[in-house]
Design a binder for these strands. Structure first.
Ligand code: MN
Ligand code: MN
Ligand code: MN
Ligand code: MN
Lengths: 243, 243
DNA sequence: AAACAGTTTTAGGTATACCTAAAATTTAAC
DNA sequence: GTTAAATTTTAGGTATACCTAAAACTGTTT
């Protein structure tokens, strides 16, 4: 069971108005994401990701440490505690369920949902989370190919390759597109057919970060290096996952 | 077009984090509701409704006044300006659309949605508002019988009577149940069939605030005075509205 | 018209979540 | 091993949204 933040700040105004662990939750989510790349997570990486000043990060880190949500080694960075990870995963679950729901149930485009979800993730009650999950048939992946953590905080660990890392002749399935990419790019990828689940074969890779030629649905398409680098794939020989 | 609160607080942290005109919006909504009963609205009535201390209300009133969202006569109370009313009605629209959506699309009970909506009302984007309204076919009434303001801020003015004010023999249609009534009461009313749209006839009214006997669906039911007083109706002879 | 009760405002305080600028610490370079 | 560069922390400040307690104002009663 996720620790109840409301119980942690006795007498604070947060407790009263019900809302507003926005900041704490967003920091924990950010730290979780950054820890995937490299742990412990430094102040400046958090500041970068959250677009705030380093001083602000330090003071939030100190608070999270007091709340036992991160382990904090002054000057060296933080790692999430179990309690912190639990909250992070719950927020991520909310985010990804909401993204999928907005697309499936309300007809949003996959380029429109990230912002909306970044706010809603903090105000979804357990009740609503459950109803949304049920309406979607307890999905395991969000529209961008990211795994949705279970209610119990289990999350599938993915094993992606960058599309740009494949050799000519390789067959692969598109697995993941960063959900925070800008709308323009997401729409472009959508038009190309480069969405999670699409099968492709690499025909050619031009040198010096040049364009890739890939075959999608029998058609061959040319993709710039920058665009291709935002596409993550799984090799087709590897055993896939149910979609 | 509703005034953009984000534009009103230059350099403030509200502007930065995007979220959080919660408090302002809730105050405006409260003032709107209270003005229906009696205008201008005094500090103490707002304090009562919002469950905060009078001093807190005064300082928020002063802020709303600075933002030109209320007209403020020191010691005598406030009325909404056009700009203030616009925001209030938009928040109310969000609230009522969300309540209806949670029931219609996600299977919530009508006793469960008010709390949820009180939070979501502040974080629904224009986009999401539109998609929800479309999914519901641009409804005019929420599940409790309250009219939903239009996108342009038009709201149907209702003309209710308390069920307890009817004489024996009167025929009426249940129009409205307070959406902030406690869940127990709402479930009880639901079981009795006293939900908006239900036709009934008053058979008997016991004196001294005694129970009412009403006929619903051919069955006669006895309802305590307190319960009956929370039910608002329209007389059946009067011309109704489409549901 | 003076006193009183009730209401409202002021004054001063807490906690959040940001900021800037200066001080301290670590890491990298010489 | 100093010095310099980069990172991180501290110190001090802003605005929100609440609080309590004291002061000021209103309306009514005597
Ligand atoms: Mn997202
Ligand atoms: Mn967020
Ligand atoms: Mn409601
Ligand atoms: Mn609210």
């Amino acid at each position: 069971m996720a620790p109840d933040l409301n119980a942690l700040a006795p007498g604070s105004s947060l407790q009263r108005n019900g809302l507003n662990h926005q900041a704490i939750e967003d920091y924990l989510k950010t730290i979780y994401m950054l820890e995937q790349d490299k742990s412990p997570v430094s102040t400046s990486r958090i500041a970068d990701a959250r677009q705030v000043k380093p001083g602000s990060v330090t003071s939030m880190i100190q608070r999270l440490n007091r709340l036992n949500l991160v382990n904090y080694e002054k000057h060296y960075g933080v790692t999430l505690t179990d309690a912190g990870r639990e909250i992070a995963l719950e927020v991520i679950r909310h985010h990804r369920l909401v993204e999928l729901y907005l697309i499936e149930a309300l007809g949003f485009g996959w380029d429109e949902v990230h912002q909306e979800a970044d706010i809603l993730e903090h105000v979804i009650s357990e009740q609503l989370e459950e109803r949304i999950a049920a309406a979607l048939n307890n999905p395991e992946f969000d529209p961008h190919g990211d795994p949705i953590p279970s209610k119990e905080g289990q999350i599938a660990s993915m094993n992606y390759k960058h599309l740009t890392a494949l050799d000519p002749g390789a067959r692969a399935v598109v697995s993941r597109i960063p959900d925070d990419a800008d709308s323009e790019l997401l729409r472009y990828l959508g038009d190309l057919g480069l969405i999670p689940g699409t099968k492709l074969m690499v025909l050619d890779v031009a040198p010096f970060d040049g364009p890739l030629t890939v075959e999608i649905d029998g058609e061959s398409k040319i993709i710039g290096h920058k665009v291709a680098s935002s596409v993550l794939v799984e090799l087709k020989s590897e055993f896939g996952r149910s979609r």
